[in-house]
């Protein structure tokens, strides 16, 4: 039994703005029958002011999906498109008096339908493009969506990602990929290595370079099918050899630059990386 708020139950019992606007100015459709929930949002938009005059929804899904959809239409009516776009999935959840964590994906679906509808109105491409990398095959969740939702909601675990996007909740085979994405996002945001750098002895420097290459750099390259080998260290010059996928990679130069930056950041400002 889910712990639903009174507000959510009320909106589930008496959803507002149910239906489909005739000749709508914007349509946003997200989700699918297979996923277990789907939402079709139709909007009437004043073309002079870009204001949403009317919003209606149709939802296939559980109580919280229906209540989230109803909440969405109530929240965006009367707003301009830009104002409406400021509505986050968290705002939706708050409006509902909170959502059980396993149901946060319902609020994300609401936010997505809104984006899709506005993109449709503005003649933009749908947010979901083919070139995007699909991470979760079961629920068709892209890497972009995972990154966006993770950053917006400060999600740090796979379980949270599943609760918010469903990704990883099916066969589970994409869980390692989600872990990598999370590592990637939060590695940039929360640097773990202290900034204070002491003057290093040559021996310490060599040890630290080896350590950074092993722990920070190689795992990332390996995740993309690449690798590197440390050939030699000569004072500030670090000589490496790219291996596996990196060898043929047209981005090889970028990779070497990135490695140099990482080593400058974590070891010493004057490091130069060369391929040998």
């Amino acid at each position: 039994m889910w712990e639903y708020s009174e507000k959510l139950k009320e909106l589930f019992r008496h959803p507002q703005n149910v239906g489909e606007i005739e000749n709508p100015d914007a349509v946003g459709e997200v989700g699918s029958m297979i996923c277990g929930d789907a939402l079709k949002l139709t909007l009437k938009i004043d073309k002079e002011t870009n204001r949403i005059i009317d919003a209606k929804f149709q939802t296939f899904g559980c109580a919280s999906a229906i209540a989230s959809s109803s909440a969405l239409t109530e929240m965006i009516k009367g707003k301009t498109l830009d104002e409406a776009l400021e509505t986050t999935n968290k705002d939706l959840a708050d409006y509902l008096g909170g959502l059980p964590k396993e149901k946060m994906h319902c609020s994300v679906m609401g936010r997505e339908a809104l984006e899709a509808a506005i993109a449709n109105y503005r003649g933009e491409k749908k947010p979901l493009e083919e070139k995007e990398r699909l991470v979760c095959q079961c629920f068709e969740v892209t890497e972009d969506k995972i990154r966006r939702v993770a950053i917006e909601n400060h999600l740090t675990t796979v379980e949270e990602i599943t609760n918010y996007t469903k990704a990883g909740g099916g066969c589970g085979s994409c869980i390692p990929q989600i872990e990598e994405i999370l590592k990637d996002i939060w590695a940039i945001k929360v640097p773990e290595v202290p900034k204070i750098k002491k003057r290093l002895t040559n021996l310490q420097k060599i040890a630290l370079i080896q350590d950074v290459i092993e722990k920070e750099i190689r795992p990332r390259l390996q995740a993309d099918g690449g690798d590197l080998e440390l050939v030699d260290i000569d004072r500030n010059k670090v000589i490496i050899a790219l291996r596996a996928m990196c060898v043929e990679c047209p981005m090889g130069g970028v990779t070497v630059n990135n490695i140099q930056e990482k080593l400058r950041e974590l070891v010493s400002e004057d490091i130069v990386v060369e391929t040998g």
């Binding site: 149910v18 029958m33 789907a38 149709q58 939802t59 296939f60």
Partner: peptide, 8 residues
């Protein structure tokens, strides 16, 4: 509920 559903 089918009235509510886009598939209904």
């Amino acid at each position: 509920l089918r009235t509510l559903s886009p598939y209904g």
